[in-house]
Design a protein around this nucleic acid. Sequence first.
RNA 1: GGUCCAGUAGCUCAGUUGGAUUAGAGCAAUAGCCUUCUAAGCUAUAGGUCCCAGGUUCGAGCCCUGGCUGGAUCACCA
Length: 597
Amino acid sequence: MSIESIIKGKVVEAVNSCYGQGIDDDTVQIQKTRREFEGDLTVVVFPFLRFSKKSPEVTANDLGSFLMENIEVVTAFNVVKGFLNLVIDSSYWISVLNTAFQSENYGFKKLEAGAKKVMIEYSSPNTNKPLHLGHIRNNLLGYSVAQILKANGYEVIKVNLVNDRGIHICKSMLAWLRFGEGETPESTGLKGDHLVGKYYVKFDQEYKKEIEALVANGMDADEAKKQAPLLLEAQEMLVKWEAGDEEVVALWRKMNDWVLAGFDVTYQKMGVDFDKVYFESETYKKGKAIVERGLEEGVLYRKDTGSVWANLEADGLDHKLLLRDDGTSVYMTQDIGTAYERFNEFSIDEHIYVVGNEQNYHFQVLSLVLGKLGYEWSNKIQHLSYGMVELPEGKMKSREGTVVDADELMDEMVNTARDTSNELGKLQGYSTEEAEDVYNKVAMGALKYFILKVDPKKNMMFNPKESIDFNGNTGPFIQYTYARIQSVLKKTVDEGIEFPEFANTDIEISEKESNLIQMIANYPVIIKEAGDTTSPAQIANYVYDLVKEYNQFYHDFPIAKEENVELRAFRMVLSKQVAQVIKSGMELLGIGVPERM
RNA sequence: GGUCCAGUAGCUCAGUUGGAUUAGAGCAAUAGCCUUCUAAGCUAUAGGUCCCAGGUUCGAGCCCUGGCUGGAUCACCA
């Protein structure tokens, strides 16, 4: 039981004993005592004034006396206004450290039978162009949230829904047929996704030329956009594809394979993976049966022209199309179908979709329609909506070439990490392979941390110059602290000091050390909060605060060089435990930590 | 126009059950600290109308109402 909950319980008793009032645990507020006051934990007494009918100071003193008598580890207290500051004995904190130190997977809940089962869908790329910065945020968020939910004891299934069909794919295919001259990834040395992306851009260029030509001949601009031969041909191709035309399907398969092979490389570099991959080419017709049933039950309605709609006016929205006049499905129909299948097939308790905030409306509608159709799990689908990534020059536009390519960005980060490391003269004595592994960890750590430290729902600014900065609130700053701890601990081994199994609780420790233990004690709480709010940013900021605190400690206190053996043992345990929490927290973000850098 | 989200230091961001006369970090700026465990570090100075106006109360960056600014969205596209 944590010290907070013990104090809470005793405060309830104290109010009862002093004022004869029964109160609820939740009315007791406990917080960390602010730096400028003496004490470790603070009870806010304002809520109890209506029971005590005394001034805040007197009330706080009443409660303080009771707590000191009834909780062994409370050794002193002081009162400032309505705040009761409690001093907790250092032996208590050291025992907390020992407990953390001796537990395996500290802060994590184990996966137990009957655990909550969560499916999380992320990435969801289109197979007509390579991944860009926006996808990076999506992938990192999805992967990290999955890690965090696992740490909360959930069973997690990571899935990817690949959008491998539609007019945009046909555009790349058509451009390649027309202008590709048989190029392949092998013949060009390009990654498959980049090769296909090249022709997607090519399509757009040629398409624009056709429009201009038509307009020059006197056609209306809007009409020209619809009548351009290339577009018509692409649409024709899509019809052929849906009809199963052998040639088109074969080409589609070939180019999709190129792209998917390219994605695999990118995913691997990014360090994300999936338990199951779905393809829209296989799921896009799903959901029709469900819609038909909804129609029979009168939950949905059919227009004269034949299309099927849901009326969401009662929920403050408009009408939403579910089947076209010709009876074909739309995006929403497909999502209804796949959601139904997933809840049935895997009997999941919750489904999280990691999708950009431009689709907030879509997911709001999805949940409402599923509710109308009578599925009790309609409120178990959660849209983890994240903001756009903006560049200093403005927005990213794939057609205008102002995107930041994922592969290029990652490569650049690695180069910068390599240069910086060499400049600083680190890693001497490492083999090339070992060194490359470190550059990779540092580079990806910088990129991942930079993105994940921001609250998901906010739009974020990606400044390439700042992102490769390795000082301050960055991934490498955290990794560096970890590496430094490893270095010190290695030194103790070299000097023949045996690593202690636990720290002696009788020693005197400084305020800085006590603070560090209290932060460690808070780690499980942070994991839970990050899970409840599906926010990796909470982990990121926690680890940063911990590291900042540790660096100050490191600067001011000797560890391996401490002469007092008991104290040295304590600091070794403390340092090792801080390192463990850093490593563990970074794992939750999908970031590796090097032993040396 | 309707709906949703955001607005905190020059810049990028923390600040979640409302708590301490003094709202925190980093970057950028200035000034210090390497014969002592990794200086990718530490310390100090400076930098604020928490978008605005009301309201709720012992107490509001946080809650409520109204407004301002920016973004997203409202397709027989996905």
